[in-house]
């Protein structure tokens, strides 16, 4: 059929690039991702098993390592729920009401993101440390915060402070207030409105925020490093333990503990990807 032949004289669509250009760009991007992201991840696990499975297990079963795991979990177990409650409360106040100074409040909530973790640790040392503003008073009360567990928890809370609010604010902004107003007009009280109308709408975004918050809480290094005092078995979290082992040239053990943290990161990424894939439209709009 004569007419059937003509579609061959169509050239490259004017709305995309030639195959060669596309291949080059994809290749370059993959090379970059490979060198900067994939290789470090692979290196962690390779180095962790460099001295065999036995050495790996020993490094992790070491009591000091186990103590650091325990402390990491304690810090996250306190910081994440508190920041979760804060995130929900702040998002509710910010997105369901109109008030002056809202954008200032949002900026302040974002603040810990733009503060160096080292400075986050520093401010607590300056506040609670022996020579800090409240140091003498705390000493007289026999309370120790810096170089002790409370300081580690506080520093962790600071650096993970915005995560949940950050996820929820755009999401709830987009959802508006109509559904809550409808629930109120149908006689629901405040708590019922939140539990039955708002919460189902934000649950996946909430989980997403908690996931990221937890990953950061368990992996935080700079801020915790400043306030911890590096007391083995007492104030060392996993990332700090990784540092100590590394600086002692105990690379295999260092990477063994690091591989636990890297696994946590991979699990977080997988869960995050799963959430985005399955519930993308129920997460913040921009990611939709």
């Amino acid at each position: 059929m004569a007419a059937g032949k003509t579609h061959k004289d169509r050239k490259v669509s004017p709305l995309t690039e030639s195959v060669a250009v596309r291949a080059c760009l994809i290749g370059l991007a993959l090379l970059f991702i490979g060198a900067f992201l994939v290789l470090p991840l692979v290196a962690v696990f390779t180095e962790a098993f460099a001295k065999g499975v036995g050495a790996y297990v020993d490094a992790i079963k070491d009591p000091i390592a186990l103590a650091s795991v325990k402390l990491t979990f304690i810090a996250a177990a306190i910081a994440v729920p508190l920041n979760l409650v804060f995130g929900v409360a702040a998002s509710w106040a910010i997105t369901k009401f109109e008030f002056r100074g809202k954008s200032l409040l949002i900026t302040l909530i974002d603040l810990p993101f733009s503060v160096s973790p080292v400075i986050a640790g520093l401010i607590y040392v300056l506040l609670f440390g022996a020579q800090g503003l409240l140091g003498p008073w705390l000493h007289s009360m026999d309370v120790q915060i810096i170089f002790a567990v409370p300081g580690i928890v506080l520093a962790t809370m600071f650096v993970t402070f915005p995560f949940v609010a950050r996820e929820l604010i755009p999401l709830m902004q987009e959802q508006g207030t109509e559904e809550e107003e409808a629930a109120r007009s149908l006689g629901a009280d405040g708590w019922q409105t939140f539990r039955r109308v708002t919460l189902p709408n934000i649950k996946w975004g909430l989980l997403y925020g908690v996931l990221l918050c937890n990953a950061r809480a368990m992996g935080e290094f700079g801020a915790v490093s400043v306030v911890s005092g590096h007391i083995r078995g007492l104030t060392n979290t996993m990332p700090l333990h990784v540092e100590i082992l590394y600086n002692e040239y105990n690379f295999a053990a260092s990477f063994a503990v690091a591989s636990l943290l890297a696994s946590l990161a991979v699990v977080t990424l997988l869960a995050k990807g799963g959430l985005e894939w399955r519930y993308g439209h129920e997460l913040a709009g921009s990611r939709g």
Binding site: L37, R216, G219, V242
Partner: peptide, 21 residues
Amino acid sequence: GLVDLPFALPTAVAGIALATL
């Protein structure tokens, strides 16, 4: 998904991995 790795990977882990590489 990998693009977010630097968000999720603890910085100390990234640090020792990069130093080794």
